[in-house]
Computed example of a mutant assay.
Amino acid sequence: MIKKTFAALAVVCCIVSGISSYSTDAATTYTYYKVKKGDTLFKIAKTYKTTVSALKSLNRRKSDVLIAGETIKVPRLAVKSAGQKQEFSISAAERKLMAQLVHAETGFSEPFAGKVEVALVILNRMKHPAFPKTIKGVIYQKTKSGYAFVPVRTGKLTRIQPTKQDYAAVDRALSLFPNDRRGSLYFYNPKITKDKWMLSRPVTIRIGNHVFTK
């Protein structure tokens, strides 16, 4: 009887362990899918080898309704169809790090569009040959003055608690990347910056107190 009880417990533990492992992966690693006309959560779940409940949990939604053109998260562990291009994806830790930098550079004073553009600067640097190829590498890139971003240099970054808007800005930037046409690589406050090289860069857009360049 005792042997049977232990065997049953072992089976339950294995099942729980499997579910926990999948949930963690689904919640921390994902990419993006743009909803097309006629799509349903069931259809998307089948394509990405997951479940409707997992998709709803990942996107924090209760409704099954989808709107053509919206962007939703799908598991990065999904198997891609033959010929389908590899999609860009990030981990939860990378998403938080980006949101921390966005908040550190924009605070509560800059508009949402400015937050999105700061996040795009990080992503655009990743695909540029002059910068590291990872989010962490870009944010913690060392320069002659210490680090590329002031909040990293001052140690402020790790103490930042991102807001929902900061996370939303990161998600918006991810949905635009890598097809962002502006290609902003730098940004500065013209009231503060006196660096001649930075001031000479081609301007891509001005948002709030920041000028974005490349």
Rank of each mutant, 00 (worst) to 15 (best):
T47R: 15
Y48S: 02
T29M: 10
K196Q: 10
L77V: 14
D171P: 07
A78Y: 04
N189S: 10
L157V: 01
V118A: 05
T143L: 05
G155E: 06
V102D: 06
P111L: 05
Y32P: 03
V138W: 02
P178G: 08
I2C: 04
K36F: 06
F112C: 05
E117V: 00
I135F: 06
G146T: 01
R95L: 10
Y167I: 08
P202E: 14
K73M: 06
S17P: 03
R206P: 05
D166L: 05
T50P: 09
F88L: 13
I2Y: 13
T29N: 14
E110C: 11
K127I: 14
E70A: 06
I67R: 15
Y147T: 07
I67M: 13
R172E: 14
E105C: 11
D171S: 05
T40K: 02
H128Y: 03
T154D: 05
L97D: 01
Y186I: 05
H210I: 13
K144S: 15
T40Q: 01
H103G: 07
K194A: 14
T204W: 09
G69M: 01
G137V: 12
I15N: 03
K4W: 12
K115F: 07
G183P: 00
S175P: 07
F112W: 00
T24L: 14
L101C: 00
A113N: 00
A168Y: 04
N59S: 04
K62D: 13
K194E: 14
K73D: 04
A173F: 05
V118Q: 04
V65Y: 11
L9I: 02
Y48V: 01
R181N: 12
T5S: 15
K115I: 06
G107R: 12
M1V: 08
A82E: 13
A173V: 08
V12D: 01
E105V: 11
K73C: 04
N209S: 14
Q86K: 15
T47D: 15
V16W: 03
F187I: 04
G146L: 04
K56Y: 07
D64Y: 00
K142C: 02
G69N: 05
I72E: 02
H128R: 05
F212R: 02
L41C: 09
G38Q: 03
I205E: 13
H210C: 13
K127M: 12
A104G: 05
R76C: 10
S23E: 13
T28W: 10
K56S: 04
K144F: 15
A92G: 09
Y147K: 00
A45V: 11
